[in-house]
């Protein structure tokens, strides 16, 4: 178990090392934020002082070494643009991203799993076909374009929902959340649905596939032959067994929702950390980009870890550690 956690952590460190090197080299090659932000009338000495103050006058390897030393002390550096600890900026924006990602995940679960069950039970009926067709469509929809269409339809033409932004937030257990108010939900609805679309399709396919797999098992056939009510079969056997692969995928998918929120946040002007990432990339605010990567990688690792634990609970055959690791 401990070994397993350690392996995961090492993996995360490897990802982080590669990505942070990339970002350092990239920003180094692209230019420096002082070019963007310094006053045009600043003299050469002033300019040089600014570059030095941000440590950008050093060779690339020194900059990177400084970053690693800082990291070991739990310090990811200050944002060039905000003058605030980069990690602090990320944490400020994180609730918004997690909120919309989580809402999307719940929507995907609530609609994808039942639809997938139906499609799995009745693959040849019109409804089964229709659901599968829908899922292929959902797979093919370019997320950002659908977002634009949502805005055009629901915000501009019909005027039912706001075109973007986050609703008022309330302090809940130390976190600012917007899902506690109706106004918050009005803002959340379009981005969350937009983000969920792709995952709904995925869950439909996944659930349908594992449902069919299970239906072919002998014990289900037996249960059917015994005259057990279909609803009971679903509830007792199919759902429980279909849940195993779903949980695995869900973990991964929550991670990818957080990543794809970059796109949705840009379309709907949602003030999450994805939008912060895009803004920071355009301003060459390297500490924030690196801090974002760190947080996201750690997030993925912990989600995967939790998923593996859940997996073990749901499927007694799986034991972590031992032979599985």
């Amino acid at each position: 178990m401990a070994w397993y956690a350690l392996a995961r952590l090492l993996q995360a460190l490897a990802v982080l090392a590669v990505m942070s090197l990339l970002v350092f080299a990239g920003v180094y090659a692209l230019g420096n934020p002082v070019d963007l932000l310094v006053d045009p009338n600043a003299g050469a000495a002033d300019y040089a002082r600014r570059v030095a103050a941000l440590g950008l006058d050093q060779p690339l390897w020194v900059q990177y070494a400084r970053f690693v030393v800082g990291l070991l002390h739990g310090d990811l550096g200050n944002s060039f643009v905000h003058g605030t600890p980069a990690l602090h900026l990320i944490f400020e924006r994180m609730p918004a991203t997690l909120e919309v990602s989580f809402a999307a995940l719940m929507m995907a679960l609530a609609s994808g799993v039942p639809l997938g069950l139906v499609a799995g039970f009745k693959p040849q009926s019109w409804i089964g076909r229709a659901i599968r067709a829908l899922s292929v469509l959902g797979f093919s929809l370019p997320t950002f374009w659908v977002g634009l269409m949502f805005i055009m339809l629901f915000a501009v033409e019909l005027g039912w929902l706001p075109a973007g932004g986050r609703g008022p937030t309330e302090h809940v257990l130390g976190i600012d959340l917007s899902i506690t108010t109706l106004e918050g939900w009005r803002h959340l609805l379009l981005p969350a649905v937009n983000l969920a679309l792709f995952k709904i399709s995925l869950l439909i396919r996944l659930t349908a596939a594992s449902t069919q797999e299970i239906l072919r098992q002998d014990y289900i056939r037996f249960a059917r032959a015994k005259g057990l009510h279909p609803v009971r079969i679903v509830g007792l056997h199919v759902l429980k067994n279909a849940l195993v692969p779903i949980v695995t995928v869900l973990g991964l998918e929550f991670g990818s929702l957080v990543a794809f929120a970059v796109v949705t946040e840009s379309v709907f002007a949602w003030p999450g950390m994805g939008k912060l990432l895009i803004d920071s990339i355009t301003l060459l605010d390297r500490p924030v980009v690196v801090a974002y990567l760190l947080v996201v990688v750690l997030l993925f690792v912990s989600i995967n870890f939790i998923v593996d634990l859940l997996y073990g609970l749901l499927d007694p055959r799986v034991r972590l550690g031992g032979a599985q690791a």
């Binding site: 920003v27 991670g255 794809f260």
Partner: peptide, 24 residues
């Protein structure tokens, strides 16, 4: 295969975004 796993664990959109931000 470890390397492939690493890459698969990291969402394609983020990887491509960071790469392009660095490459132009």
């Amino acid at each position: 295969m470890r390397a492939a796993d690493l890459q698969l664990a990291f969402p394609a959109i983020l990887l491509a975004l960071i790469l392009l931000a660095a490459l132009g």
